[in-house]
Amino acid sequence: MMGEDRRIETVVIAAPEAGDRLDRVLAARLTDFSRSRLKTLIIGGHVAIGDRTIRDPGQRVNANDRVHVTVPPPEPPEPQPEPIALSVVHEDDDLLVIDKPAGLVVHPAAGHWSGTLVNALVAHCGDSLSGIGGVRRPGIVHRLDKDTTGLMVVAKSDRAHRSLARQFADHGRRGPLERGYLAFVWGGPDRPRGVIDKPIGRHPQARDKMSIQATGREAVTHWETVQTYRGKAGEPVAALLACRLETGRTHQIRVHLASIGHPLIGDPVYGPGFRTKAALLPAEAQSALAALGRQALHAYLLGIQHPSSRKALVFRSDLPADLARLHKALGGGTIDLARR
């Protein structure tokens, strides 16, 4: 059965390609595969020139050589499939977009080897995963913190994974990639919008935290005030901000907003010093905050270019129930996501 599942690609070397490396020629011809994947296939004995197996990616090819690439079926996934319910916003042969709930870890890691989004995706996609790097697994090109909700795109094939990875690496500078977040923060900013351009690096003492570092990586966040919430005495006590990312650093929004004195409501890592402000909130808002149990951050907007059709796709997600309750309890009105 394993042999029946294999796909064989044949490449005939043209004269201009003669003398070039085998892996380079195959990468130029077999664009569904990354060069690293092709190198793995060569080293693994899955490539032959004529009837001779080649295991050297640097093997030089001759004009009129016939190169046969045998692609084995994807290996079983290392993360095991688990029947975890997913909110699927969009799915096709190349990708799927999900609305991640709070509390769901994206990728297996120490302390979270099961019950993750990857485990759920392996179960949901099944055989529709064509394999990322030869392993039947979903391609994660960006992540959301465990307690951040909202939109994520996941690749189902090597080709889609490469396309989406390029888009996220470019941060939308030359394409339609967009990432928008709704952030509930303490305090009311003194202007309607702004840009935070501060480099972020690993915290020098607390290795599980990030911080503003002169030697850190470039990080840029654009924000604008959507609504301002007032306390018992009518003073601005909190606000809802719409944030757009120009870069994608770990904890970027959380670190950036804390750096300008407006940390996320409910953030136990970057905003613990603002817990006393909860006493300024109306009673209903205090109750909603106590029930929240997480940072108040939601990825409401995701725009990508489809890997196959090249069409721009835009997805929006309403506030989840816990943040909608907080918004209402704070006295917030209608949020028009289509304008943001």
Rank of each mutant, 00 (worst) to 15 (best):
L177N: 14
I265E: 11
A206C: 01
L240Y: 05
A242P: 02
F274Q: 14
A278G: 13
V195I: 05
A258N: 01
Y270C: 01
K232R: 14
D170F: 02
D170K: 03
T276K: 14
I260H: 00
D208K: 11
E178K: 15
R162N: 04
H256C: 04
A279K: 12
A238E: 09
G188L: 00
Q213P: 05
T276Y: 09
G273P: 05
R193A: 14
A219T: 05
A169W: 07
A285E: 06
V195H: 03
H161R: 06
I212P: 01
T215S: 15
R162P: 01
P272I: 08
G271W: 13
T221N: 08
V195E: 04
L281N: 04
I196N: 10
Q213F: 03
G180E: 09
L281A: 06
P236L: 05
D158F: 03
G150C: 04
Q252T: 07
Q205L: 13
Q213M: 14
T225E: 11
H171F: 09
G266P: 11
L240P: 02
R179P: 15
V153T: 12
F184W: 15
G231W: 01
D208W: 07
A233H: 03
A283G: 04
T276L: 13
A214I: 05
G261V: 14
P282A: 02
A279P: 01
A238K: 10
A219P: 05
E178V: 15
R249F: 07
V226L: 11
A155F: 11
A219C: 03
G234K: 11
G175I: 06
W186Q: 06
A238L: 11
F274T: 14
H256P: 03
K156D: 02
I200E: 05
G271M: 10
A279Y: 02
Q167G: 13
R217P: 02
I253E: 07
H251Q: 10
H256M: 06
R173F: 00
L257E: 03
M210G: 01
D267S: 10
W186H: 15
V154K: 00
L281Q: 06
G234N: 12
A206D: 13
I265N: 09
A258H: 06
A238D: 12
V154E: 00
M210R: 13
I200C: 10
T228G: 02
H262W: 12
L164A: 12
V237E: 02
A285W: 04
R191S: 14
A169R: 07
V154R: 00
E218V: 07
E235L: 11
S157W: 02
P263E: 11
A278W: 10
E218K: 12
P189Y: 07
K156V: 00
V220Y: 05
T276D: 10
I253K: 13
G266C: 04
A238G: 06
